[in-house]
Computed example of a mutant assay.
Amino acid sequence: MEKKVGYTRNNLFTTAPIMESFPQLADWMKEEMEKDRKRPHYEKGVLIEELWMEDKKHLKALPLTDLSIFSVKSTKVNKYGEIEVDGEKFVIHKAKMKQTLVIKMEWDQFTCFMNDGEMVYQEARPYMNTTRAIPWNDILIDWEKKPRSVRYSRFFKYLPERVQTYLTIRSEETRSRVKGIKKLLEKHTLNDIHMALERKERFERAPHELGFILEAREASYPEKLNEIHTPEILLNYETDLNIYDKRLCPSLEGGAS
């Protein structure tokens, strides 16, 4: 087995291949190794592909269910509601501070369980480089309980710049503004809220007032109507203002005064 690993590394990875994903890499390696069967065996002088076809006749059927390979460890939730996996921190919203969790570590993902077996979190392992959605609703619930932690939260930097300012510009209103933003996210996106804060005076508005502004913005841009009554010659017609200049002030165009 180890010799085959070395053979594969020396023949397929002497120049690092371009990897888009693990499935893509596996398909590429399968294709390359199938090509490699076309050469004669170093000792038997027969094509490796012919030897493989003969070996297949003696293979046994694979199990109907996958063999689950994993390790199990335990960890404690820190005071910020986080655990650390593979050097990266993850927030576990359903767990309490200092609570011990059991983690099932598989090659591509990990799963967190309470002591009673309840699953509270599942995520891809960091080296899988998968995009994770930020659970803003859960985060805002935590911020509402601890408004002074907003500025120091590791999620704060992922907010649009104007939303960051809106939440922290008045420290005494941070709790109510966090609660209001959470309510706005039921109908709008963070980018929508960011765009609604394009004017400085709007940073003084309460969250429900921003809601009125967002609804007005959406109502003021109706979808373009499809109609057949406008003559084709007038579609996309651009007015030539020089014609009006000549009519209103002929002297500017060399005409009679």
Rank of each mutant, 00 (worst) to 15 (best):
Y158F: 15
S68P: 02
P17G: 14
E43G: 02
T100P: 00
N236G: 03
P231Q: 09
E82C: 05
M105R: 06
P160T: 09
Q109E: 09
P231L: 09
P17V: 14
Q99C: 00
H93M: 04
L214E: 10
Q164C: 07
D116V: 02
E20Q: 15
E54I: 03
R205T: 00
I243S: 05
E215A: 12
R205N: 01
P160S: 08
A26R: 14
G255I: 02
E186D: 12
K79Y: 01
W28R: 13
D27S: 15
E43K: 15
R148W: 05
N191W: 03
W52G: 04
L252D: 06
T130R: 13
E82P: 01
L64I: 07
D116E: 12
K73T: 14
K182L: 07
L25K: 12
L210Y: 06
S74F: 01
N129A: 10
I139C: 02
P126W: 06
E32A: 15
G180E: 03
E2A: 15
K56H: 02
R205H: 05
L101P: 02
S21I: 13
H93R: 07
K157E: 12
Y80W: 08
P250W: 09
A26H: 12
E123R: 08
P17R: 14
I213M: 07
D116M: 02
K96Q: 02
F110T: 04
V150K: 01
P147Q: 06
E209G: 00
S68M: 09
K146V: 03
Y121F: 15
S153T: 05
Y7G: 08
R202M: 05
L51V: 05
T130Q: 14
K56Y: 05
L197T: 06
F156Q: 02
L62N: 07
E172K: 13
K98M: 03
I141W: 02
I141H: 08
I243T: 10
Y158V: 00
G87R: 09
T15A: 14
I134S: 03
A133W: 01
D86K: 06
L12F: 15
S171T: 11
A133S: 09
M33Q: 14
E232L: 11
I48M: 12
E253G: 04
R148P: 00
F113R: 02
A26G: 01
T131I: 11
W107G: 02
Y158C: 01
R132I: 12
T8W: 11
A26F: 11
P160L: 08
I243N: 03
E82A: 02
R154K: 13
V5R: 15
S71E: 12
A26Y: 11
V163K: 01
P40Q: 09
M119D: 01
N137I: 01
A256D: 10
D27C: 07
H93G: 08
T8A: 14
V5Y: 14
K187M: 00
T239I: 12
H208E: 12
I181V: 15
